[in-house]
Write a protein that binds this DNA or RNA. Structure first.
Length: 595
DNA sequence: GCCGTTTTCGGCCCGACTGTTTTCAGTCG
């Protein structure tokens, strides 16, 4: 049981209530779900310590919901939810994932066509039945089909930001077991891909069977797909699959290399090995081409031919190349670069930005708009995480739904930031809060805050939040114009994509990169797990063009500040070095890189 | 259902866009 599961139940209840046209309650449930989603402490712990009263104290949770949480802790279910689910047997979470489909549409689709699932909807839309419904039309039907395609394409993959914390905890537990010597996540998690299909965990152990037993005792699984002497595969209660393999210590490097992938990287590496008279497998690098017939052949001739496999470094070195960081293993030219580097030729592999090298965060929202925490709380948490500065970048006027700030509110926030900085100074704390904003780029490329006020800010972020469906040429011109503003420092989430939810808007990235270079505008690598925008391929292009970038968390609560590491991972995947990322510089140097 | 230097009752973020409509509901941010 987790806060997240509870949050998901509450937000589903919100959707059901919206279908029922219940006023105001949906927002209350939605709000509580949002709070639970980012709550640091487990509700069970709060309940254990302070009972229902403690739950009631959580903001957004009142008496009613506190009792539902209690019910959930005690019985594992919420009666209200079960009742609604029975009454309205629709896969509503799934259906509303389709862009443009909300609760009211789901209600009508069910009422008229008995549509319960995405599969039902696709069938009906393809048969042209949807367009005939009242208030639906051909255009809506097309949009629905497009939305379904997008959802289907991203199905079965999970955001790195969802999986990663789970895996970290699991690895910690495994390493705590007396039966496990080492535990590490391989696969797309180790490569820090933005989405993850399933989780691959490798361990070494003296007692594989016991280690597997231990794994099953600490992971909450729904189903065991298979279980053998050295491998076990489960579907977790959260709904994703974990494969765990036990490797002998002496081939751990080769195994890790193999299971880290990517497939494309490995194919290329094996082909290269073969061309040099080697054979590479998960059991090591071997001289000669004779195939191993048995999977885990331990005969002496095999062993004597085995030349590298204890560490990954051994494997790459034996093949005559430098070590390749997992984030680079996508067959995007890294093998040739590693070979060149080992021979002292250029260009070699990039010296990718190390984790933990950021000194600041240049996009942070607070409770002045749609963030959940105060300026000071965000600053203190950032400091705790080892940062030296953050920029407060709340939304501006046009984003009315977030309580977007006009010039007056912005000026008043600037005075508040002055006060907080003075307070830090008085307390002898070395930390700086920068004045900033996430300024909206209007349809015509102008900004929604006057230049006079922008000039007073330390950091001006600009971004697109509306009119996503403009033609590519117009969208590019719109952004290029905004980048030309003499105060516009950073282009936030440059392509607007939401992974598994919304495509990037149409924009000519080459022109944006060229404009960034020309105008000295910084491009953002937004680290929020569902954005990760720029994508790795665009980062690589920006690096090649000599553009500077900033890695920002886009935090809306203190718990989001940790997202920065996903941004660093994204930068590494895009071959970026520390010098390319302005917020890896100390404050003064960073500021000197802004307009 | 939640919350309160706005009131323990009576409010709840709100403007733009889209597609369906002849005046608006639904969705998104």
């Amino acid at each position: 049981m987790s806060n997240k599961e509870l949050a998901s139940l509450f937000s589903t209840i919100a959707l059901y209530l919206e279908i029922e046209d219940v006023p105001f309650k949906p927002q209350a449930y939605e709000r509580a779900a949002g709070v639970l989603e980012t709550l640091q402490e487990r509700v069970e712990d709060i309940y254990e310590r302070e009972g229902v009263k403690g739950l009631d104290k959580i903001s957004g949770v009142g008496k009613g919901m506190a009792e539902k949480i209690e019910e959930y802790i005690k019985t594992g279910a919420i009666g209200e939810y079960e009742k609604l689910r029975k009454k309205i047997p629709i896969d509503i979470k799934e259906l509303t994932r389709i862009e443009g489909v909300g609760p009211k549409m789901v209600r009508d689709l069910y009422k008229h066509l008995k549509i319960k699932t995405i599969a039902d909807l696709e069938k009906a839309a393809k048969a042209g039945k949807v367009r005939k419904l009242p208030n639906f039309g051909e255009r809506t039907e097309q949009n629905i089909l497009q939305g379904i395609e997008f959802v289907k394409r991203s199905k079965g993959r999970w955001l790195l930001g969802t999986i990663f914390p789970y895996v970290e905890v699991l690895l910690g537990k495994l390493e705590g077991s007396p039966f496990v010597t080492r535990a590490i996540a391989a696969g797309s998690i180790r490569r820090m891909k933005e989405t993850v299909g399933d989780v691959d965990i490798l361990i070494t152990s003296e007692k594989p069977e016991k280690a597997i037993g231990y794994f099953l005792s600490v992971v909450s699984y729904e189903k065991i797909w298979g279980k053998g002497a050295t491998k076990v595969s489960v579907r977790t209660r959260e709904g994703f699959d974990i494969d765990m393999r036990v490797l002998p210590e002496e081939v751990f490097g080769a195994g890790l290399q193999y299971f880290t992938g990517s497939k494309e990287h490995n194919v290329r590496l094996r082909t290269y090995a073969a061309s040099k008279g080697y054979k590479l497998s998960e059991y090591g690098l071997f001289r000669g081409k004779r195939r191993i017939v048995l999977q885990q052949s331990q005969d002496n001739s095999e062993r004597s031919r085995r030349i590298a496999c204890a560490t990954e470094e051994d494997v790459y070195r034996a093949l005559g190349m430098n070590y390749i960081e997992p984030e680079l293993r996508e067959d995007h030219g890294e093998i040739d670069a590693a070979l060149r580097q080992a021979q002292g030729k250029l260009p070699g592999l990039p010296k990718v930005i190390p984790y933990g090298s950021l000194k600041g965060d240049l996009q942070v929202q607070t409770d002045w708009t749609d963030g959940k925490d105060s300026i000071e709380a965000m600053a203190r948490e950032a400091k705790k995480q080892g940062l030296e500065y953050i920029a407060i970048t709340d939304h501006t006027r046009d984003l009315a739904m977030t309580g977007g700030m006009d010039e007056k509110k912005l000026l008043s926030q600037m005075r508040e930031i002055d006060k907080i900085n003075e307070k830090f100074k008085a307390q002898g704390e070395k930390f700086r809060v920068l004045k900033g904003a996430e300024v909206n780029i209007r349809k015509d490329g102008t900004l929604d805050i006057t230049d006079e006020v922008l000039a007073k800010l330390d950091v001006v972020g600009i971004s697109v939040h509306s009119n996503f469906k403009m033609p590519k040429k117009d969208m590019t011109a719109r952004i290029v114009k905004a980048m030309g503003n003499p105060h516009a420092d950073i282009l936030f989430h440059p392509t607007g994509r939401l992974i598994a939810k919304r495509e990037a808007y149409q924009v000519d990235m080459d022109e944006i990169i060229a404009t960034a270079k020309k105008t000295g505008t910084i491009l953002e690598i937004n680290a929020f797990p569902e954005r990760l925008d720029l994508a790795d391929s665009n980062i690589k292009r920006a690096v090649e063009a000599g553009c500077k970038m900033a890695i920002d968390s886009d935090a809306h609560s203190i718990s989001h500040l940790g997202y920065l590491r996903y941004g660093v991972a994204q930068a590494r995947r895009g071959w970026a070095e520390q010098q390319d990322i302005i917020n890896s510089y100390p404050l003064k140097e960073m500021l000197s890189l802004l307009k």
